[in-house]
């Protein structure tokens, strides 16, 4: 075991890690930050997305020791210090962008990155960007609406309606 230290949600945090400890397990078990979810074993679902040095990555497919010293933002770091939801989080609530909520942390982290790179995406760009995030419940339309709303744009009537 080796001690690994990162800046997590703005604070320096340390916990032990083996060579094989995944970033997601280090966060969930080492720091008890259980907002980041694990939805698959195959790097496909995106439930585990966090921001690593500002960029979205799948925390289930990064080794904790490898990124010792990095800056990480998890879903716990997205709301304001007083608990005020971010624009993306609020829009997920307003537009019913979640049902069971399992995929939601990854969806919010991915959508937050998208709006940082591209503040006014088209509906097609939203769908393209979220291709690595799988949702078993919503059918995606309300997630897309939430992201459009969070970007301050008109919310489209989607094809399926």
């Amino acid at each position: 075991m080796t001690k690994v230290t990162m800046i997590v949600n703005g604070k320096s945090r340390s916990a032990e890690a083996e060579g094989r400890t995944l970033l997601v397990d280090w966060l969930r078990e080492g720091l008890r930050l259980t907002g980041t979810h694990v939805g698959c074993d195959t790097t496909q679902c995106g439930a585990c997305i966090v921001h690593l040095n500002g960029e979205p990555v799948k925390a289930c497919s990064v080794l904790a020791q490898e990124v010792d010293g990095a800056e990480v933002t998890t879903i716990e770091g997205i709301a304001g210090a007083d608990g005020t939801l971010s624009a993306v989080q609020q829009a997920f609530q307003d537009y019913h962008g979640l049902q069971c909520g399992f995929c939601t942390p990854g969806m919010v982290m991915a959508a937050t990155s998208l709006l940082r790179e591209n503040p006014r995406p088209s509906e097609a760009e939203v769908r393209h960007y979220l291709e690595g995030n799988i949702c078993r419940c919503t059918g995606y339309h309300n997630i897309v609406k939430a992201v459009m709303a969070a970007s301050g744009q008109d919310v489209p009537a989607v094809a399926a309606e």
Binding site: L52, V57, S113, G132
Partner: peptide, 9 residues
């Protein structure tokens, strides 16, 4: 290739 998170690694 893949999706944005895969492309970042």
């Amino acid at each position: 290739i893949g999706d944005p998170a895969v492309r970042n690694r």
